[in-house]
Design a binder for these strands. Structure first.
Lengths: 217, 217
DNA sequence: GGTGTATCTTGAACACGTTCAATTCTGAAC
DNA sequence: GTTCAGAATTGAACGTGTTCAAGATACACC
């Protein structure tokens, strides 16, 4: 129904605006409802819980991340340049929600929760996010060559998750420390990818990949 | 006061027992109080919040970890053997709280929260935990030699944090996957420590250490 | 227009973590 | 034994996320 979609959208927009303005905990379901001009129960008709509104936030952040990156990625460039661009762009997209970082992660980390990045429910969102790093790797010139090949995008995505976690803890002005982390991490990763073809490291790389496989659910 | 200490202990014991029996969320403050034969407000006289009871759990887990490990560590052994022993022992100590893992981490992850492993409030607990890995490194025979030297214990502690996070998500029987992760990770770490002295890797190792330093609060 | 069904909306009610004014208890001082 | 200040304890009350029976609305069909 058209009306239904409107209400759903209204709830999300109001909630996300209030999240950014006041943080997660200060934004009560009653406040969301009253700001949207609805009854509190109505929001629950569309979203089973407050956490699901956070999941909606993830979705938007991801879409925005891809949009923000779409302008840079087709241009080519080295793995290092592309990776740096994508990570900084991601931090930029998340910036408005910085103050709400704690609630952000607290919700996402719950193993059972639908919002968890590893959950079945967010499989689509996860694959969308991983595909961003597939593009990073595949579009790089010169082409990336490493025994980690097929796993590399997923490993980069895991790294991005780690950077996000760091970002949440980073209370520096404008998340400056996280940006520094990215600037330090990216050349390191690029060098490790190159080194991974070295004979001395080859068996270690294989072991890492085996471990990653073995340990996956 | 003696009476005071008794009540405090009674609250903690009751809470931790119920956490292990029913999980974090199902253990309400009212239930803790009634099981302990107290008024709910009385628990709040000793603990500012439910989260602080979780912090108490961390403290105990850490003490138990050190105790469990004390029997193995003085025996010497390689870095690999010692590290493996410490990690498996840690998993053993945490095992009773496995079902409660989600709440466990959800509380610990909150950046502002006192229970966060990076918070000022848990500095002592953190240092105790890091000191475990100092012992692992210093007691190892043959002696560990790596340019990462002074940082190694803290890096191992970070790895342990990562393993703990993995454990929380691991729903396999007896946390089997986490144990496999440890068995795969430990030789890898040991090899990386050895490789870190290789000239080709030297500058990379230095960059990692510089990054770690630069990015610390 | 009238009827029926599925969709949408309402707000009181519930259990939770937490607070706090009021009350009881404890132990030192005389 | 009395006093009294501080420590310990109580439980009703508050605001929260969430539920749900009840009602309002929309729409297809006659």
């Amino acid at each position: 129904m058209a009306r239904s979609d409107d209400t759903r959208r209204l709830v999300v927009d109001t909630a996300l605006r209030l999240f950014a303005e006041r943080g997660y905990e200060a934004t009560t379901m009653r406040l969301i409802a009253s700001e949207a001009g609805l009854a509190v129960g109505n929001a629950y008709y569309y979203f089973p819980s407050k956490d699901h509104l956070v999941q909606e936030l993830y979705r938007r952040v991801q879409v925005d991340h891809r949009t923000a990156v779409a302008e840079r990625l087709p241009l080519g460039g080295t793995l290092e340049q592309r990776l740096r661009g994508v990570l900084h762009a991601g931090l930029g997209v998340m910036a408005p929600y910085r103050s709400f970082g704690a609630g952000f992660v607290s919700v996402a980390i719950k193993p059972g929760d639908a919002a968890s990045p590893f959950s079945q429910a967010s499989r689509e969102a996860r694959e969308t996010s991983v595909s961003l790093f597939v593009d990073v790797v595949e579009g790089a010139r010169p082409a990336v060559r490493t025994p980690a090949g097929a796993e590399l995008p997923e490993l980069l995505w895991l790294m991005w998750l780690g950077v996000t976690l760091f970002w949440v803890y980073d209370d520096s002005e404008g998340s400056a420390r996280t940006h520094r982390l990215v600037d330090g991490l990216v050349p390191l990763v690029a060098r490790l990818v190159r080194l991974s073809r070295l004979p001395v490291l080859r068996s270690t790389v294989d072991d890492v990949l085996t471990l990653v496989h073995e340990v996956r659910p």
